[in-house]
Design a protein around this nucleic acid. Structure first.
Length: 468
RNA sequence: GGUCCCAUCGUCUAGUGGCCUAGGACAUCGCCCUCUCAAGGCGAAAACACGGGUUCGACUCCCGUUGGGACCGCCA
C-alpha cells in the first residue's frame, strides 16, 4: 500500500504554528514512507474563506519547505461530488431531509441546556414525509451501537453512538458540511493516513460511520496532541506571534522552526537537532507523544541561533539582505558582507538582530553611545590611538593576523593589557562597548574606514568640549 | 452539563516492571575561558499530581480522585 497523507487547512486566516506542525507531520510521514503528500483547501465555508488566506497558507508551506505532490484541491470546486454522495445516502435511506429551521434548533438547544440536557438534535424529522416545497437540510441517520476509532497514537477509542446526533451533511442552501466533505475527499483522494489535530478525535466516529455508509474503506487515523500557549490554553493570537510568516519576518530560519515543531510532540531519544533528511529518516508515529505541549519560544530561539551559527557566511549574507534593506541599508555590491556576517553570526539569535548589529559597518557616521564615549574616549588615549593609526596604516595585506600584530606591538612597547586598548578602539569604530572581536571587526570593516574612524575619535578626544 | 483525550524538572522530553540515587535539551544560577558581548567548557538547582490495588518489585500495569485540554453548530 502506498502511503498518502494530506494537509487540509481552511483558508480563514494565516498558516499558524499548530497548522504548520500538522502539515509537517503529514509531510514527514509521507516522505518517510516514500508516499504522497496532498494539499487540500477546505473552503466550503464560502463566507469565511478568502483568497489572501489561501495565499498566506501556500506561502507559509513554501517557506517551510513543505512541498506537496498533489493539489491544492479546492473543496469549493467539488460541490457536485458531495451532492452526489448525499443523494446516494438519501437513496439508501441512510440520510433524511430535515425541515427544522436554524432558529427552531437554536431555541431547542437553548432550552435543553437550560434544563441540563445534552443539546442534541432529537431526530424528529427522521420519519416525516418529504415536503418538496419547503427548504431542508440533510441529516445523516446515526445508527445505534458503538463506534470504535483505532488511533495510531491514542490506541482504541470507543464512542457510544447515542452521543452522536444526526448531524447535518448538507445545508439548506445546498452546500455540504465539513464531516461529509472530509470523508468524501479523503476517500476519493485515497488518503491512507489521516493525521490531524486532537480536536478532531470527537468527529472521527461520525466520519467512520460515513465511510461505512458510503462503502468506502476506513483509513488509519492519528490524532496529534494540541499545542498550547504559556497559560495552557489553546495557542492563539493572545500568545504572541502564531503566524508562521511572522517568524520569517522576525528573522527566523525556516529549518529552525521545522526542527522546533518536529520536536514538539515527537522525540527521538535525546536528540534535539535534526537535519531535514534526518527528520524524514527518523520520523515515526510511534514516537509521537499523547499529551499536549506548550509552545516555548525560547527553545525555538535557541535553535534559530544554533542554525544561524552553522549556516555559511555566503548564505547568511544573502538571507540578511532584506533585513538590511528595511533598516535603510542597501548592501548590494558590498563584498564585505559575508565577512561581516561571519563576525556576527556567533552572537545573533535572529537575522533581524544580526542586521541591526551590523549597522555600524555600513553607516558612514558612527552612532556613538555617549556614556561609552565619555568613559573610553579620553584624552589620555590620544597617543595610543595615533600610534595605532600609524601601525595599522603599515599593515599590508590587511588581515586579522596583521591587525593583531599591530596591536600586540603597541601593547608590548607600552606594557599594557589588550583590554586598555581594545575597548576604546571598539567605541571609536563601532560607537559602543559591545561588538564582535576587535581584530575581526576591524578586518571586516576595512582599512580605510577603520583609520578614518580612529582619526575621528582622536579629534573627538582632542576637543575639550566634545559634542557627540 | 455530557462525551472523549491527557498527566515525569518552569518548558520540550527519555523512560515500555528491576538498568532510576529518574537521563537529555531550553530557560535559570555559579565557575572557567576572555579585548566587550556572545559562543564554548564545567557544574548547580529543578520532576514521576494524589490515593488505592496488581506484583517479590512500580515512573512504568489496573481502578479511582484531582487537575488540564478538546468536542458537543445548517464552523472547519
Amino acid at each position: 500500500m502506498t502511503v498518502r497523507t494530506r494537509f487540509a487547512p481552511s483558508p480563514t486566516g494565516y498558516l499558524h504554528i499548530g497548522g504548520a506542525r500538522t502539515a509537517l507531520f503529514n509531510w514527514l510521514f509521507a516522505r518517510h514512507h516514500r508516499g504522497r503528500f496532498v494539499l487540500r483547501i477546505e473552503d466550503t465555508d464560502v463566507a469565511r474563506s478568502t483568497e489572501e488566506s489561501i495565499k498566506a497558507i501556500l506561502d507559509g508551506m513554501e517557506w517551510l519547505g513543505l512541498d506537496w505532490d498533489e493539489g491544492p484541491y479546492f473543496q469549493s470546486k467539488r460541490f457536485e461530488i458531495y451532492r452526489k454522495h448525499v443523494d446516494i445516502l438519501l437513496a439508501k435511506k441512510l440520510a433524511y431531509r430535515c425541515y427544522c429551521t436554524p432558529e427552531e434548533l437554536e431555541e431547542r438547544r437553548r432550552k435543553a441546556i437550560q434544563k441540563g440536557y445534552p443539546p442534541r438534535y432529537d431526530g424528529r424529522c427522521r420519519n416525516i414525509k418529504d415536503a418538496p416545497d419547503m427548504p431542508f437540510a440533510v441529516r445523516f441517520m446515526v445508527p445505534e451501537g458503538t463506534t470504535t476509532v483505532e488511533d495510531l497514537i491514542r490506541g482504541r477509542v470507543s464512542f457510544d453512538n447515542e452521543q452522536l446526533e444526526d448531524f447535518v451533511i448538507l445545508r439548506s442552501d445546498g452546500t455540504p458540511t465539513y464531516n461529509l466533505c472530509v470523508v468524501v475527499d479523503d476517500a476519493e483522494m485515497e488518503i491512507s493516513h489521516v493525521i490531524r489535530g486532537d480536536d478532531h478525535l470527537n468527529n472521527t466516529p461520525k466520519q467512520i460511520l460515513l465511510y461505512r455508509a458510503l462503502g468506502y474503506p476506513v483509513p488509519f487515523f492519528a490524532h496529534l496532541p494540541m499545542i498550547l500557549g504559556q497559560d495552557k490554553t489553546r495557542l492563539s493570537k493572545r500568545h504572541g506571534a502564531t503566524s508562521v510568516m511572522a517568524y520569517k519576518e522576525m528573522g527566523y530560519l525556516p529549518h529552525a522552526l521545522v526542527n522546533y515543531l518536529a520536536r514538539l510532540g515527537w522525540s527521538y531519544g535525546d536528540q534535539e537537532v535534526f537535519s531535514r533528511d534526518e527528520l524524514i529518516e527518523k520520523f515515526s508515529l510511534e514516537n509521537v507523544g499523547r499529551s499536549s505541549g506548550i509552545f516555548n519560544p525560547e527553545k525555538l530561539l535557541w535553535l534559530n541561533q544554533h542554525y544561524i551559527k552553522n549556516t555559511s557566511n555566503e548564505e547568511l549574507a544573502e538571507l540578511m539582505v532584506p533585513f538590511l534593506k528595511t533598516l535603510g541599508v542597501d548592501p548590494s555590491g558590498d563584498e564585505r558582507l559575508p565577512r561581516i556576517v561571519g563576525t556576527l553570526k556567533e552572537r545573533a539569535k535572529t537575522l533581524k538582530e544580526m542586521a541591526e548589529a551590523s549597522l555600524f559597518y555600513f553607516k558612514d557616521e558612527v552612532n556613538y553611545d555617549t556614556s561609552a564615549v565619555r568613559k573610553f574616549l579620553t584624552p589620555d588615549r590620544i597617543e595610543l590611538f595615533e600610534l595605532l593609526v600609524e601601525r595599522l596604516s603599515g599593515v599590508e595585506p590587511f588581515t586579522e593576523e596583521g591587525i593583531e600584530g599591530a596591536f600586540r606591538s603597541i601593547l608590548d612597547e607600552k606594557g599594557i593589557k589588550l583590554k586598555r586598548l581594545a575597548q576604546p578602539v571598539r567605541v571609536a569604530i563601532t560607537g559602543r562597548t559591545v561588538s564582535p572581536g576587535i581584530f575581526e571587526t576591524i578586518g571586516a570593516l576595512g582599512k580605510e574606514r577603520t583609520i578614518s574612524r580612529l582619526k575621528r575619535a582622536i579629534s573627538l578626544m582632542k576637543d575639550t568640549n566634545p559634542t557627540v
